[in-house]
Design a protein around this nucleic acid. Structure first.
Length: 567
RNA sequence: UGGGACGUCGCCAAGUUGGUUAAGGCACGGGGUUUUGAUCCCCGCAUUCGCAGGUUCGAGUCCUGCCGUCCCAGCCA
């Protein structure tokens, strides 16, 4: 373990690939990402995408995008397009774009081969009867063979062809593999290969009246494409014997290896397609791209960067243990990425007026401020200081606790990028609330001047009341109030929706350049967090920004602890 | 009650066929720098690998038993 070399993130799948390359089993690695076009991609899919593309990239291989479109009732073109957008946005480009439906013809021929070799038959038991015949494996009960199991090959062939031609209604027949009705692995108890669906497919139209099941279609699609490592999630582990059985019993074009890994779950959210669909359709969120959702479209709109998401999955690694990852970890990757790239600016979320009594009305002090404190190459911007400015209401306290380094009556604080000011007067309204502050600035302490080296404890941000522009800001936060909303027994996950998952601030004051930005532009609001123009709602003349994530805030932690101690 | 998997620090996770001191990241604690209480930089952070036995000179790595968690009864994927 050398100390200076960065730890190479490794995992059991990568190790298998390396072995296969070294042993000469494969010369080239080919993987695939096989989404079903019946929903939107989420952060969990990103794990699979990063794994599949990542492993191929690392070893100079190829990765196909393959739509697993074997169920015409649920799939459509819109989902397909959205998925392609998401994969590209994440930063990956597939070597080939395929569809399981591209292989319907070959799949059919292979099925005929299985019938001819007496390894498949046309079933006419009903779904309920089949269920009954399969036996109760929970109680170790063997299954019974269907009366149609040994029907003559010619009869199956004839029926199968007529199924294909659309001569029967849905559900009338089914093609089954003839494997083992007593297998403890329930997927081996004569699984269904084809069902009749007199439905229009979004790509093949009315050409087919039968559609292959996942287990039949998937492995063969892999084999046709020459996939070397077919990576999938844990729930398919029990399907692996079937995956292999199918390939072993047809003249297979190649022999891919299925390897399973665990899904990546996050806390304080839900990831299942069904749950996400419910949230969208019931209006709990504003669409598939709602910034609070863990969908890739949502994360993108929220302002999470693909770089951060890729680094997140790459560092977390891949294993077979079920895990729920803290949202905080993902947020950290976003902070780390944005910290390096986001230009700095000042924005006041909850404005309190300050009058600089020794700065004449109508006069503007122009100040030069760096766009990034650690990266001069990002350049500078001009910031206007005027007699009236806004500061953050929470940056002033009349009677502050110890260690409060911000403004207090008589106290001094630095205005970021500008001067040190002293609070000389607190003006209150009729009900005793602080309405405005009078301060005097010390002209010798201007940024860049010799007097600027004078130290004061705190620095606060501000915006000129004359130059600042009001914008709408949406404070995105976790969608749920509990780590595992689906894991609470006797409760519906909807009960745990966070009412403050997207509080709207209608009147945030920003520097003029921010208001002029366009969709997707992002910034660090110094001392507050990272924000970006909403991809769909931010319009010129009516800017809307999302809070991507807050800055790490140790003062907030101290405050919290103090509050706790007071209890 | 059957089958398939998994259990290494709060959260991820590495641990080549058993071999001296159990990687790394995040979180956390302490210190330093700082015109963001941000960033950055140091330092600390599992005598222990779900539990209990056993094999061995030696086990996170092998054996046995137990406990816990997840998945499986679509003509879904």
């Amino acid at each position: 373990m050398s100390s200076d070399a960065p730890a190479v993130p490794t995992n059991f799948i990568r190790n298998i690939v390396i072995e296969d390359l070294e042993s000469g089993k494969h010369q080239e690695i080919v993987t695939r990402f096989p989404p079903e076009p019946n929903g939107h991609l989420h952060i969990g899919h990103a794990k699979s995408i990063c794994l599949n593309f990542g492993i191929a990239d690392e070893f100079g291989g190829r990765t196909n995008l393959r739509f697993d479109d074997t169920n015409p009732l649920k799939e459509n073109e819109d989902f397909m397009n959205a998925i392609m957008d998401d994969v590209r946005w994440l930063g990956f480009e597939w070597d080939n774009l395929f569809h399981a439906s591209d292989y319907f013809g070959q799949l059919y021929d292979f099925a005929v081969h299985l019938i001819r070799t007496e390894k498949a038959y046309v079933e006419e038991l009903s779904a309920d009867e089949m269920l009954d015949y399969r036996g109760d494996w929970m109680n170790n009960e063997p299954g019974r063979e269907s009366p149609w199991r040994n029907r003559p090959v010619e009869e199956s062939l004839d029926l199968f062809e007529r199924m294909k031609n659309g001569e029967f209604e849905d559900g009338k027949y089914v093609l089954r593999a003839k494997i083992d009705m007593n297998s403890p692995d329930r997927f081996m108890r004569d699984p269904v290969m084809y069902r009749i669906r007199n439905a229009r497919h979004h790509r093949t139209g009315d050409e087919w009246h039968i559609y292959p099941m996942y287990d039949w279609a998937h492995g063969i699609s892999d084999a046709i494409e020459g996939i070397t490592h077919s990576l999938c999630t844990l729930e398919f582990e029990e399907h692996r014997p079937l995956y292999e059985w199918f390939l072993e019993n047809i003249p297979t074009p190649s022999m891919p290896r299925q390897i399973e890994f665990s899904r990546g779950n996050l806390d304080y959210t839900v990831m299942s397609k069904r749950r996400l669909r419910e949230l969208v359709e019931e209006g709990h969120v504003k669409g598939w791209d709602d910034p609070r959702l863990p969908t890739l479209a949502g994360l993108r709109r929220r302002g999470f960067t693909p770089e951060a998401i890729r680094a997140f999955w790459s560092d977390l690694g891949v294993s077979k243990s079920n895990s729920i990852i803290s949202m905080g970890v993902l947020e950290n990757y976003v902070r780390n990425d944005l910290n390096v790239r986001a230009p700095r600016t000042m924005a006041v979320m909850d404005p309190l007026k300050v009058v600089l009594t020794n700065l004449p009305e109508g006069e503007t002090e122009w100040l030069e401020a760096p766009l990034h404190p650690q990266n001069e190459e990002m350049g500078t911007r001009r910031v206007a200081l005027t007699r009236e400015i806004w500061i953050e209401r929470s940056d002033f306290m009349e009677d502050p606790p110890r260690k409060f380094f911000r403004l207090k009556p008589g106290g001094e604080v630095r205005l970021r990028n500008a001067f040190i000011v002293q609070c000389t007067n607190v003006i209150k309204d009729g009900s005793g609330n602080v309405a405005e502050l009078h301060c005097e600035f010390d002209p010798d302490t201007r940024s860049g001047m010799p007097g600027a080296s004078r130290k004061v404890k705190g620095t606060i941000h501000w915006v000129s009341a004359e130059h600042g522009v009001p914008v709408e800001v949406r404070l995105c936060d976790r969608l749920f109030t509990v780590p595992n909303p689906l894991g609470e027994k006797d409760h519906d996950f909807r009960e745990f929706l966070n009412p403050h998952s997207m509080d709207v601030m209608e009147h945030v004051i920003v520097e003029p350049e921010v208001a002029e930005g366009g969709p997707g532009d992002f910034y660090q609001f110094e001392r507050t967090g990272y924000f970006c123009h909403d991809l769909v709602d931010s319009k010129s003349g009516r800017p809307v920004l999302n809070r991507i994530v807050t800055l790490r805030d140790s003062w907030a932690r101290i405050e919290k602890e103090m509050a706790q101690r007071r209890k």
